[in-house]
Amino acid sequence: MGTVSTVLSPPALRTGMALAGAGFRRWATYRQAMLAGAFTNTVFGFLRTSVMLAVAAGAGGVAAGYRGPQLATYVWVGQGLLAVVQLWGWTELSDRVRTGDVQSDLLRPVHPVLSYLAADLGRAAFALCSRFVLPMVVGLIAFDLYLPHRPATYPLFLLSMLFATVVSFGVRYLVNLTAFWLLDIRGVIMAWLLCSNALTGMYFPIAFLPGWAQAVLWYATPFPSILQAPVDVVVERGTAGHQATVLAVQGCWAAVMLAAAVVVQRRAERRLVVQGG
């Protein structure tokens, strides 16, 4: 309890905001890379939408409970969210462990998990303004997308994206922490990429799987909370109660992943060997 109140104290929040702002500005530096990424996401959006609409048509207009416009929205929101939750390729922490630069992180009076989380939220905010918006605008112009009917869905979607980013951060942070033991984490990264593509709802909606597999994925793994959850919230799959359940599951996974990151960080620091002298 004391730790939570310390983290949420006004000075700590100001520090967090400053770190998040730095994360935003840091990523805003590379505008051409942002445009290239948004372009690629948009191209793949067209390809994936064509496949999904064909699936819906083949299933008589409704596939696993999604109508055509909902599936198109699933694709375009997913393409935009890829960068927001940074589904692929974050090895900054493991690189710093490998080079020994991680000691600079440990010399600051801010817990490394909070410091990296704040910077990641800043990065996600920039991605939301750029990498999410650009493909969504193209998708809205080119396809008949499903727009939420319930006004409450819009703030719930924002909350769901926040949870998704935190869950994704937690998983990525844990993957990177393995560098304290392994140094070379390419194998772990490969496993994460496999899971992040197949189990988050990136390749296909989780609802396409058998019921038991869906239950296992939603409740026993954090993966659907990273991508499928915000998509299901925004396409209003099921009732408002279902939306609340999805958000509750995401919230739980966000808390679990952050707690796990803090615990593993503590163990990792005990076995720290600063590389490179």
Binding site: M17, A18, A22, R25, R26, R108, V110
Partner: peptide
Amino acid sequence: GQRSQLWWDLPLRESFRLLRYVYR
């Protein structure tokens, strides 16, 4: 001497401003 505590992608002024908040 062989490591950096500054933010690589940001101007020096930004790093200093950030450190004010980090160290309160």
